[in-house]
């Protein structure tokens, strides 16, 4: 067993998940490729969404992959950081908006 939970080299082995279930693996990767094709959104926009989500779910593999993908697409570091702030704002907002629940409870119980 490896001594750390994450190894950067494992990212390259992602495709191997199909070895233990070819049918579902294939369906997943077909879906994955289709999702990132240009549609109503450009591939570039999708790459930035992926980068922001990667940080939200704190997936080191995804951060590695979509930082590299962004650079290849000519996405600037300023654009990447703005995308991360969107993720951070939603995460922070998600905590804070529950403050209304806290306030409701306090207002109900407190004299």
């Amino acid at each position: 067993m490896q001594k750390t939970y994450y190894d950067p080299a494992d990212l390259k082995k992602f495709g191997k998940i199909s070895d233990w279930n070819e049918e579902l693996g294939k369906k997943f990767f077909d879906y994955y490729s289709k999702v990132f094709e240009e549609g109503a959104l450009t591939e570039r926009e999708k790459s930035l969404i992926a980068l922001a989500v990667a940080h939200t779910i704190q997936c080191p593999y995804c951060i590695d992959a979509y930082t590299g993908d962004g650079l290849q697409r000519g996405i600037t570091k300023e654009e990447m950081m703005e995308a991360l702030h969107v993720a951070a704002a939603i995460r922070g907002g998600a905590s804070l908006v529950h403050g209304v629940q806290m306030m409701n409870k306090v207002n109900k119980l407190d004299m």
């Binding site: 591939e43 570039r44 590299g68 993908d69 650079l71 290849q72 697409r73 000519g74």
Partner: peptide, 8 residues
Amino acid sequence: FLPGNQAS
């Protein structure tokens, strides 16, 4: 890093 898609 490698270049992205030329057309894009």
